[in-house]
Amino acid sequence: MSVRILALVGSLRTGSHNRQLAEAAVKLAPEGAEVDLYEGLADVPFYNEDLDVEGSVPEAAAKLRAAAQAADAFLLFSPEYNGTIPAVLKNAIDWLSRPYGAGAFGGKPVAVIGTAFGQYGGVWAQDDTRKAVGIAGGKVVEDIKLSIPGSVTRFAETHPVDDAEVAAQLTEVVARLHGNVGAAA
């Protein structure tokens, strides 16, 4: 049985380095792990309890929840926007935290990684993401961290999958997350 890991990327930009990291995770997933890169976060409306009514949840939000319910674990990729988590990723977390007490994260393991232009690789945003997803019900695997600085120069001409150091680190992240499935209970 393959472990399904849902990848959510906090950048909507087509050429995003965090998206490229997620693409690399899909390609580098070890045997027994399947990383699914979620498409469609741009279509999910901002969370609003008035919209979150059983039977009339917006289609894009319902699709996100269904994909999350089917996942065994989550791998979140967060760039850093003005020192914190991007709105699109926070919005996804908000939708997946509901209904209260029965959200899609439901104690499943979650790892947060990413890259940013700055010298710390987006650690503030990644820490904020860990906090939000933990409150939302995910079991944050605190010892899985990967913050890659200098994304604009490091990945200017090299896709992360072709960067041997990053590929090795990313493979280890996915393998360790895979190993936490079942240990989350």
Score class of each variant (00 low, 15 high):
149 P>Y: 13
84 T>K: 03
179 G>A: 12
148 I>Q: 00
144 I>L: 04
63 K>C: 00
92 A>H: 00
61 A>R: 06
80 E>N: 06
58 P>D: 06
176 R>K: 14
52 D>N: 12
1 M>G: 14
55 G>N: 11
156 A>Q: 15
13 R>Q: 15
49 E>T: 10
11 S>N: 13
70 A>Y: 02
84 T>G: 15
154 R>T: 02
87 A>F: 01
122 G>M: 08
169 Q>Y: 05
167 A>K: 05
168 A>F: 02
172 E>W: 02
39 E>I: 05
91 N>P: 06
126 Q>S: 01
32 G>S: 11
160 P>E: 02
3 V>K: 11
56 S>W: 09
172 E>M: 03
97 S>A: 14
40 G>M: 01
116 A>C: 03
31 E>H: 13
53 V>L: 13
86 P>C: 09
6 L>M: 05
184 A>R: 12
133 V>L: 04
161 V>H: 03
179 G>M: 07
67 A>D: 12
131 K>D: 09
76 L>A: 06
158 T>E: 09
77 F>M: 12
86 P>L: 08
26 V>H: 11
147 S>Y: 00
167 A>D: 09
6 L>F: 12
162 D>Q: 13
128 D>W: 09
135 I>S: 07
71 A>V: 09
3 V>C: 10
99 P>F: 02
95 W>Y: 14
133 V>P: 08
115 T>E: 08
134 G>C: 02
71 A>P: 05
14 T>G: 12
70 A>R: 14
121 G>L: 02
152 V>R: 11
127 D>A: 15
172 E>D: 15
24 A>I: 00
107 G>T: 07
9 V>P: 02
83 G>V: 05
13 R>Y: 05
167 A>H: 06
19 R>E: 06
22 A>Q: 02
139 K>S: 11
132 A>F: 05
20 Q>T: 03
42 A>S: 15
64 L>I: 04
174 V>C: 03
145 K>L: 04
165 E>W: 09
109 P>T: 12
175 A>P: 02
173 V>H: 00
112 V>R: 06
117 F>T: 12
168 A>Y: 00
111 A>R: 05
93 I>T: 08
128 D>Q: 15
183 A>C: 01
100 Y>M: 11
104 A>Q: 14
158 T>K: 08
43 D>P: 09
139 K>E: 12
74 F>I: 01
12 L>Q: 10
36 D>V: 14
66 A>D: 13
126 Q>N: 10
21 L>P: 00
108 K>D: 11
130 R>E: 09
147 S>V: 03
79 P>F: 07
177 L>S: 10
168 A>M: 11
29 A>G: 11
69 Q>I: 15
58 P>L: 04
18 N>D: 12
172 E>C: 04
156 A>Y: 06
169 Q>M: 13
31 E>W: 03
117 F>E: 07
25 A>V: 03
116 A>F: 03
74 F>N: 01
118 G>Y: 05
175 A>N: 12
127 D>E: 15
154 R>Q: 09
3 V>F: 12
58 P>Y: 10
107 G>H: 04
44 V>T: 09
120 Y>W: 13
137 G>W: 03
20 Q>V: 01
133 V>K: 02
108 K>I: 10
16 S>G: 13
161 V>W: 01
159 H>V: 01
174 V>Y: 00
95 W>L: 04
54 E>H: 07
73 A>N: 09
39 E>T: 10
